[in-house]
């Protein structure tokens, strides 16, 4: 209501010089970037963009401490890429990064989709959207598949109302929350051209490339080792073949497809152990996935039966 007290407060002494390296160390940004490098395989351009953004924010913070900049920079971002390319995981890391740099107070990530923002009847949308925005205040709001908010074929769709509230809060409460929009590249482009307000309010557009076959193979190894499983040599080459075949089939979702494939391989391994192994099993046998576990996949026979039928027709 009144800011007289803050205005009357005496000016605190501003630093004359700034040690960026020390600020980099002290803020803990380095830990986040190192972790990003270590835990995320591939994604070279994304890591590069995040490092650049971190540098910009660090310099901006130093400038603010010296009184050179007063405005909070626009931090809203757009992550575009195919499914399973690590958008949500990177968003989590981004929230942590922004928290350590002091741009958001809490650093939590709230993930929402159209269902969480858009209501079902008149007057239902605004409270719902505001509820989601309030929950995300002090942190990051991650809107997955943001283009579903806009339904051009139905001009009375309530999505437009959610978009207007989002734009308003993105502009007025820039200190309180950061919004990240995510989705497939081509549909996001269409979404932005239909809603120019969004494009101008988003400063950072980051594109997530597809993983290469080698990267997916490494991701598979990492996923398994996190659960104390390992591939043997036969399974490793079967996995490489699997990845190449799976990519050509419909509904390929990069790392998510790999995770699902590994879940099914673990299921087959458990069944195999249960039905064939009679002797006492050691830890190695319990945690090794063999070639047979992978080769049993339907992907080697040309995918799901329904998809194959469709292809033949």
């Amino acid at each position: 209501m009144n800011n007289t007290e803050t205005e009357m407060r005496p000016e605190t002494a501003r630093p004359q010089t700034v040690d960026l390296a020390a600020a980099y160390q002290a803020s803990g940004v380095r830990d986040v970037l190192d972790e990003l490098d270590r835990t995320m395989i591939g994604l070279g351009p994304v890591k590069q963009r995040i490092k650049e953004t971190a540098a910009l924010l660090l310099v901006d913070k130093a400038r603010r401490e010296m009184g050179l900049a007063v405005e909070t920079p626009t931090l809203h971002m757009s992550f575009t890429g195919n499914p399973g390319t690590g958008k949500t995981t990177v968003a989590l890391k981004m929230a942590d990064l922004l928290h350590r740099l002091g741009y958001v107070r809490k650093g939590h990530l709230v993930t929402v989709t159209r269902d969480d923002l858009v209501g079902q009847y008149i007057g239902h949308t605004a409270p719902k959207t505001k509820e989601a925005l309030k929950k995300a205040m002090g942190g990051v709001l991650f809107i997955d598949e943001a283009y579903y908010l806009h339904r051009p074929e139905n001009e009375r769709d309530y999505g437009q109302e959610a978009i207007e509230i989002l734009l308003q809060v993105m502009e007025n409460n820039r200190d309180d929350l950061v919004v990240i929009l995510a989705g497939y590249a081509d549909r996001m482009d269409r979404f932005y051209s239909a809603n120019p307000g969004f494009r101008s309010r988003i400063a950072h557009h980051i594109e997530f490339p597809d993983y290469t076959d080698e990267e997916l193979a490494r991701i598979a190894e990492v996923m398994l080792s996190e659960q104390n499983y390992a591939l043997d040599d036969g399974a490793r080459s079967a996995m490489a073949e699997y990845i190449a075949l799976r990519r050509a089939q419909p509904h390929f979702a990069n790392a998510r497809s790999i995770r699902n494939a590994l879940d099914r391989a673990r299921l087959r391994q458990a069944n195999r152990l249960f039905s064939t192994a009679a002797t006492p099993l050691d830890a190695a046998a319990l945690s090794t996935i063999t070639e047979a576990d992978i080769r049993a996949s339907r992907v080697f026979r040309g995918g799901l039966d329904t998809d194959r039928k469709r292809a033949m027709e």
Partner: peptide, 17 residues
Amino acid sequence: WGHPMFDNPDAAAVVYE
């Protein structure tokens, strides 16, 4: 004025309301 805010971790939401 609206519901009690049970699951908002940050007070910016209160100031907003």
